[in-house]
Amino acid sequence: MRISDNPLLMREIIMDHYNDPINKKVPENVSEYKQIRMDSTSCIDDITIYVKEKNNVVEDCKFDGVACTICTSSTDIMCDLVKGKTKDEIEEIAHNYFNMIYEKEYDEDLIEEAVVFKNTYKQASRIKCATLGWNGLKAILFGEENEEK
């Protein structure tokens, strides 16, 4: 069964990544990371994303700050998802993730656990929360912060 067929599992995944976000910390060798502060203008979320990149591969991704459940868990899942991947692969994943958020066609297999946010459109005010981490990552990797729509 797919994750997206099981609302209970989806809840559990969101809550796990909220209650125990393993990527939520300032990295030890922070000087090796590029970082960006993502302070939402429309809500409380205020996080900093840290990305360590070498030879076009994201070796590590972390974040820290204050954020709601949706922002915390979506960013934590994102960190898991992009670790060890190339920039091209990440661009593809991000593109599919944003497509899902904005109710367009997307490849569920590509975004793995991040599919738990497929209902975000029901709470439009939380779209910012579910994309804050992703926008930060894109800004670091691709120098863009403009939201895909």
């Binding site: 809500c43 709601c68 949706i70 005010s125």
Partner: peptide, 10 residues
């Protein structure tokens, strides 16, 4: 978290 509660109320 307050923001989550506000979303729920919404």
């Amino acid at each position: 978290f307050a923001q989550d509660e506000a979303s729920y109320l919404n």
